[in-house]
Design a protein around this nucleic acid. Structure first.
Length: 857
RNA sequence: GCGGGCGUGGCGGAAUUGGUAGACGCGCUGGUUUUAGGUACCAGUGGCGAAAGUCGUGGGGGUUCAAGUCCCUCCGCCCGCACCA
């Protein structure tokens, strides 16, 4: 038997597929379509195991549905704008465009070596003007519709990346990528009006039934809808008021207007305008505010416990209780970013308010009585009551439940003009301006006379200048000597270009539409987009659960509003894959070692070079910093892509983390070699030998049909690990069938051909090779998925367990679906069972057909 | 703190949704082939027990003829969100 070199064999089939255009999506729109998409990569230069897992998962589906007769769209491209290119330019003096292009070339080669069934004709990189010009036009259309606007606002400034971050990109007060502590700055920024769709984005989550629940929950929380009321509290002018004394109203947002009678104070955020104004004339307050700002977000965890405040001495009128005054405090637990930046404190029914009230000796009046408590002796001390109940101490509202109380409160406030119903969202508009070079230019011109002027559509694209200098810090577009100078499209006078570029999430918010029609001069045509969309199965990391997925959901809505298409949800199905993990290794100095640097000896590990003992640590997500990485290229080089793919799918279900192990790779490799030997069995009957319908090969035929049935179901349900198990089971059945009679041999050929077909979505190269070895002249990737004969799947004889009082005592063989009485009689005739019965008469016999018989005595 | 998930052999994981726990693989043990190692092949492999048996799905309790699966409770791990008014 020829020893096949996977490298040679895989290249051979990759070339044949490419030459035949096997994976080009068809123009035949009569077939049902299946659009499977993996999140496209940033072209960092090299693929990692996370990519291998991601793209293998997608490729199995693409190949499976293609064989099932679907018109499959399975494209790949490059999310090519972003910071690493600029960093490379700064560090190595290489131009971002050149660097990115080189990376794309090498990563494309790596991906091609995996044998992924992409329609490479649709490939594009988002840094090409032919791509980003369309998003410039989209932006202009958004602008016309009021979906994009510019405003001055506080922004999150990443001092390391010298740019603005969206709220979503700030994690624990630090930049999501740089890890630098984020500063607050006030800048003019472009925003996209994602909040316009907040309600729809939230409500539609319910319809995304093919999304993981946790992602749906994360988006739900992120949008953070709360319904309640805005309440106005009138400030009381104190004696001795000066011009600097704050006047007017404090507006408060509350989700619990029903507890208004329990209000005992007002608290405003440290950066609330009222607090700022007050601090102008009050040094103590200014100190307190400064202290609040210092605590900031970073140490929030430590500071959570303590509620602190500053009594301004000001007070407000209670809108419903005449004569009742509430003191106004500045408090460290009130956030300017949420609601109105001010609250009314109802200590009895909010733990934070209670902690604060207890610390500053403010009154605590319960206004909600739990149903099992008595109003006369119900008090609140350390624990706020937030459960259901009836209102008390609340005038006309007494006796109402909470919901009715809220309605009554809102009506009462509206009647006297002291408040109104209001819904707030945690979701903020999406700030898209970035002070970077390597991004899509924002097509805007600033003219002294005409103001902010959109670049006319005919002048698009606004392209990046190529001669840029990265030696001065800040945005190279701003420091470029000529690029920003232009003329105003309205008046023709000298004007200045917008120098910010878009957040790179802009590109990834519509790339899936471009794939539907990548050569379109309009970005994409409605016809193609509406045929292919929505994406049937989207696959990627859970780290994009909120940002990318939410922005994309917004984009399809916004694009629909400006008439690009008519679609709300871009991703019908979503799968979030788990991480690829590996054991970590450290030498005695604590230095991390690559797995390739260590060798196992018995139970211990040694450094291959030095022979020193190595500590094997936790199994963790592969990361460069801990060096617990395995380079896919080396795996593919030594074992082949089929082995890498098969192992990726073998053990862990896709959504769970998996551990990459040498022995696992070996196992996958061994299995493929074993199957390959089967196909090379020279004693197999000729191609075209009909599959036997009876006789001594029938069991093997049944095994093959069971495998077709089970594996197909497993792939449809993303249970790839079980699908691999089905392959093993069929291979074992083939091995266990020893007879060489003509019928068995014919059955063996059928079983092996079936096995080859079933392997093909998972390990496609070797499957093609075996298919050819078996005598086929057409490629396996063009053949139809085998169909299971369901009449052959169910066994005629079933093994049924017999229990006595719920404990298994014996098993017997029965004909499938035999009458219950027959099963019962057979069970009671079993000598083993009789022994357990000890001459007692069974009280009851429960027969679950084809499964179990339980004798109760 | 709130919300969600998970806990099954030495390991990764199965279990038709309440019906024979441990499919399949890794590892391990023994054997065959081989000068030997590796490969390949055969057999075995949840614990205890010579066996008959018996125990066993994080701990405890419950419902049921029957519980890995449902309910209560406790423990442990992981993830998300967080002074969200």
């Amino acid at each position: 038997m020829p020893q096949q070199n996977p490298k040679f064999l895989e290249k051979k089939w990759q070339e044949r597929w490419a030459n035949a255009g096997s994976f080009t999506a068809s123009q035949d729109k009569s077939k049902p379509k299946y659009y499977v998409l993996e999140m496209f990569p940033y072209p960092s230069g090299r693929i990692h195991m996370g990519h291998v897992r991601n793209y293998t998962l997608g490729d199995v589906l693409a190949r499976f549905y293609r064989a099932k007769g679907y018109n499959v769209l399975h494209p790949m491209g490059w999310d090519a704008f972003g910071l690493p290119a600029e960093n490379a330019a700064i560090e190595r003096g290489e131009h971002p465009a050149r660097w990115t292009k080189q990376n794309i070339t090498s990563m494309r080669n790596q991906l091609k070596s995996m044998g992924l069934s992409y329609d490479w004709d649709r490939e594009f990189a988002t840094c090409e003007p032919s791509y980003y010009q369309h998003e410039q036009l989209m932006f202009l259309k958004f602008l016309e519709k009021g979906l994009a606007y510019r405003k001055e606002s506080w922004v999150n400034w990443d001092p390391e990346e010298n740019t603005v971050l969206a709220n979503e990109q700030v994690v624990d007060g630090r930049g999501w990528r740089s890890g630098a502590v984020v500063e607050r700055r006030r800048l003019s920024q472009w925003f996209l009006k994602i909040t316009k769709y907040a309600d729809d984005l939230l409500a539609s989550i319910d319809k995304l039934d093919k999304w993981p629940d946790r992602v749906r929950l994360m988006q739900h929380n992120w949008i953070g809808k709360s319904e309640g009321a805005r309440v106005k509290f009138k400030l009381i002018e104190p004696l001795g008021a000066t011009d600097a004394t704050p006047r007017g109203h404090i507006e408060v947002f509350t989700t619990r207007p029903d507890t208004l009678f329990g209000a005992s104070f007002i608290a405003v955020a440290a950066n609330h305008p009222l607090a700022t104004a007050f601090a102008d004339t009050n040094k103590e307050a200014a100190n307190f505010i400064a202290e609040c700002a210092k605590l900031g977000t970073s140490e929030a965890a430590v500071e959570t416990a303590e509620k602190r405040g500053f009594d301004t001495g000001l007070s407000v009128e209670h809108p419903l209780l005449h004569g009742k005054e509430l003191p106004v405090h500045i408090a460290n637990f009130v956030l300017m970013e949420y609601g109105t930046g001010a609250i009314f404190g109802c200590p009895a029914h909010d733990q934070r308010d209670l902690d604060f009230a207890n610390a500053y000796n403010l009154p605590v009046t319960p206004v909600v009585l739990p149903t099992d408590k008595d109003a006369s002796n119900f008090t609140i001390t350390d624990e706020a009551y937030t459960g259901p109940g009836k209102l008390i101490n609340s005038g006309d509202w007494n006796g109402l439940d909470i919901e009715a109380g809220k309605q009554a409160a809102i009506e009462a406030l509206e009647a006297i003009g002291a408040g109104n119903r209001e819904t707030t969202f945690r979701l903020r508009d999406w700030g898209v301006s970035r002070q970077r070079y390597w991004g899509c230019p924002i097509p805007i011109i600033y003219c002294d006379d005409c103001g902010t002027v959109p670049v006319p559509a005919a002048d698009l694209p606004v392209t990046l200048p190529e001669d840029v200098d990265f030696s001065t810090p800040g945005n190279p577009l701003a420091s470029h000597p000529t690029w920003k100078h232009t003329t105003c499209p309205c008046c023709g006078k000298a004007a200045i270009r917008e120098q910010d570029t878009f957040d790179t999430f802009f590109e990834s918010s519509w790339y899936f539409l471009r794939f539907a029609d990548p050569k379109s001069i309009h970005g994409f045509s409605r016809k193609e987009a509406e045929y292919w969309m929505p994406i049937d199965q989207y696959i990627g990391g859970v780290e994009h659960a909120v940002l990318h997925l939410l922005y994309s959901r917004f984009f399809t809505r916004a694009l629909s509003e400006v008439d690009y298409l008519d679609l709300a949800e871009p991703f019908a199905g979503l799968m979030t894959q788990g991480m690829v993990c590996h054991q970590t290794f450290q030498d005695k100095n604590g230095r991390w070692l690559f797995p390739s640097e260590v060798r196992q000896e018995g139970k211990s590990w040694r450094n291959i070079e030095t022979g020193d003992n190595v500590t094997a640590g936790r199994i963790e997500k592969m990361s460069k910093s801990k060096r617990n990485v395995v380079d896919p290229e080396i795996i593919i080089e030594s074992y082949g892509a089929d082995t890498a793919r098969l192992f990726m799918l073998s053990d862990s279900p896709p959504e769970r983390d998996m551990e990459w192990t040498e022995s696992g790779v070996e196992g996958a490799s061994r299995f493929l070699k074993r199957v390959h030997r089967m196909a090379n069995d020279s004693s197999l009957p000729a191609i075209g030998t009909p599959q036997p319908t009876h006789g001594d090969g029938i069991e093997l035929i049944r095994s093959a049909h069971k495998a077709i049935y089970n594996l197909s179901k497993d792939i449809e349900g993303f249970r790839f690990n079980r699908a691999v198990a089905q392959l093993h089971t069929l291979a074992n059945a083939i091995t266990d069938t020893k007879s060489t009679s003509p019928t068995v041999s014919a059955a063996r050929r059928f079983a092996i051909e079936t096995l080859v077909q079933l392997i093909s979505p998972l390990a496609p190269h070797i499957a093609e090779e075996m298919w050819e070895v078996l005598g086929h002249r057409t490629m396996l990737c063009d053949s139809k998925w085998p169909k299971a004969d369901e009449s052959l799947i169910a066994d005629n004889i079933v093994e049924v367990g017999i229990q006595v009082n719920g404990k298994l005592r014996d098993t017997i063989s029965l004909t499938r679906d035999c009458p219950k009485q027959e099963a019962e009689d057979a069970a009671l005739a079993s000598p083993t069972i009789l022994r357990y019965l000890e001459n007692q008469t069974p009280k009851r016999v429960i027969v679950v057909p084809n499964r179990i018989i339980n004798v109760v005595v």
